[in-house]
Simulated assay, not measured.
Amino acid sequence: MPQITVDYSADLADDFDRPGFAKALHEATVEIAAAKPPACKTRFRRTEDVVVGPETEGHAHVHVHLALLSGRTDETKARLTEATLDLVRKYVKAAEGVVLHASAEVRDLDASYRKFEA
């Protein structure tokens, strides 16, 4: 915990400092949501095709899913969401003429969540 997944447009691959973003997001998650640094895990999933409305070109997206153990207030989740979007603005630079659609969501992990380390 937390489990962080970042979906991003393939067109952003060269314009998205993913390691820098993950490190900064982990720091924000520790500060805002009281997570433990070694517990923060981020994976990135490259999305090959993005369609926005009728458009197949000229758009890129980043969506960040943050899943935390339950117990955080809605205010804490909202602060973390806003901090996440601020970090997207800092670490993603879409090409000129490309509209970047960015979103983030913080949710509680299901009660069935379990993990192990080997």
Rank of each mutant, 00 (worst) to 15 (best):
residue 31 E to G: 03
residue 17 D to I: 10
residue 35 A to T: 15
residue 64 V to K: 04
residue 11 D to G: 08
residue 53 G to S: 08
residue 11 D to Y: 01
residue 18 R to V: 06
residue 19 P to V: 12
residue 34 A to N: 15
residue 44 F to Q: 01
residue 73 T to R: 00
residue 55 E to W: 09
residue 114 R to Q: 04
residue 23 K to G: 09
residue 76 T to D: 13
residue 112 S to A: 14
residue 31 E to D: 10
residue 22 A to D: 07
residue 22 A to Y: 01
residue 13 A to V: 00
residue 80 L to R: 01
residue 17 D to Q: 09
residue 111 A to S: 06
residue 18 R to K: 10
residue 104 A to Y: 01
residue 91 Y to V: 05
residue 29 T to C: 02
residue 51 V to D: 12
residue 31 E to T: 06
residue 88 V to M: 08
residue 86 D to W: 02
residue 97 G to Q: 04
residue 91 Y to W: 07
residue 53 G to M: 10
residue 101 H to E: 03
residue 117 E to L: 09
residue 8 Y to F: 13
residue 35 A to N: 11
residue 48 E to Q: 08
residue 76 T to R: 11
residue 40 C to H: 07
residue 54 P to K: 14
residue 64 V to M: 02
residue 118 A to S: 05
residue 18 R to C: 04
residue 116 F to C: 14
residue 56 T to D: 15
residue 40 C to W: 03
residue 33 A to L: 08
residue 78 A to R: 10
residue 14 D to R: 05
residue 13 A to I: 00
residue 35 A to G: 08
residue 30 V to A: 12
residue 76 T to C: 15
residue 88 V to A: 05
residue 62 V to Q: 11
residue 65 H to V: 00
residue 62 V to I: 15
residue 116 F to R: 13
residue 42 T to C: 08
residue 53 G to L: 15
residue 83 A to T: 07
residue 88 V to C: 06
residue 52 V to M: 15
residue 28 A to I: 03
residue 41 K to Y: 11
residue 63 H to M: 13
residue 100 L to N: 05
residue 61 H to C: 01
residue 51 V to C: 13
residue 59 H to Y: 07
residue 24 A to E: 09
residue 13 A to W: 00
residue 36 K to R: 15
residue 18 R to F: 09
residue 14 D to T: 09
residue 61 H to D: 00
residue 94 A to C: 00
residue 5 T to E: 10
residue 2 P to R: 06
residue 76 T to G: 08
residue 79 R to K: 13
residue 54 P to H: 14
residue 47 T to F: 00
residue 107 R to L: 13
residue 111 A to Q: 07
residue 103 S to W: 10
residue 23 K to N: 06
residue 6 V to H: 01
residue 3 Q to E: 13
residue 70 S to Y: 03
residue 21 F to A: 06
residue 68 L to V: 15
residue 116 F to Q: 15
residue 19 P to M: 09
residue 107 R to N: 13
residue 102 A to G: 03
residue 81 T to Q: 08
residue 115 K to P: 05
residue 51 V to R: 13
